[in-house]
Amino acid sequence: MLTKKALLLASVLALSAGATQAKGPDVVVSIKPIHSLVASIMQGVGEPALIVEGSASPHTYSMKPSNAAALQDAAVVFWLGHGLEAFLEKPLESLGTGARIVELEDAPGLEKLKFREGGAFEAHDDGDEHESGGADSHDTAHDAAHEHHHDEGEVDMHLWLDPHNAKAMAAEIEKTLAEIDPANAATYKTNLANLDARLDALDKTLVETVAPIKDKPFIAFHDAYQYFEKRYGVTVAGSITVSPESMPGAERISQIHKKIGELGATCVFAEPQFEPKLVTVVLEGTPAKSGTLDPEGATIEPGPDLYFKLMENMGASLKACLSSKA
Rank of each mutant, 00 (worst) to 15 (best):
A6H: 11
S11Y: 01
V12G: 10
L13T: 07
A17K: 01
G18S: 14
G18P: 00
A19G: 01
G24V: 07
P25L: 04
D26E: 14
D26L: 04
V27K: 13
V28I: 08
V29G: 01
I34K: 11
L37V: 00
L37Q: 03
V38G: 00
I41T: 02
M42V: 03
G46K: 01
P48G: 02
P48Y: 00
I51P: 05
E53L: 03
S55I: 03
A56S: 15
A56M: 10
P58G: 12
T60C: 01
T60W: 00
A68F: 00
A68K: 14
A70H: 03
V77C: 02
G83C: 04
F87I: 08
L88G: 02
L95Y: 10
A99D: 10
I101D: 00
E103D: 06
E103K: 06
G109I: 07
G109F: 14
K112A: 12
K114I: 01
K114H: 03
E117A: 12
E117W: 07
G118Q: 09
A120G: 15
D125N: 04
D128M: 06
S132N: 04
S132R: 11
G133T: 02
T140Q: 07
D143W: 09
H148G: 11
H148D: 12
H149G: 15
H149W: 05
H150F: 04
E154I: 04
D162H: 08
A168Q: 07
M169S: 13
T176M: 03
L177N: 07
L177K: 06
I180F: 00
A185V: 11
T187E: 11
N191V: 13
N194T: 12
L195T: 10
L195H: 06
D200V: 14
D200H: 11
E208R: 09
E208W: 01
A211W: 12
P212V: 03
P212A: 03
F221A: 02
A224N: 04
Q226P: 05
Q226I: 04
K230N: 14
Y232C: 05
G233Y: 08
T235E: 14
A237S: 05
V242K: 08
S243I: 05
S246A: 05
E251N: 13
S254A: 15
Q255S: 02
H257F: 10
I260G: 03
G261E: 13
T266C: 08
T266S: 15
C267I: 12
P272Y: 01
F274I: 05
P276A: 06
L278M: 09
T280K: 15
V281N: 15
V281C: 12
L283F: 08
L283Y: 09
L283I: 04
G285I: 04
A288Y: 12
G291F: 01
T299P: 07
E301Q: 14
P302I: 04
P302G: 09
D305W: 00
K309M: 09
E312F: 10
M314I: 09
L318R: 08
K319C: 02
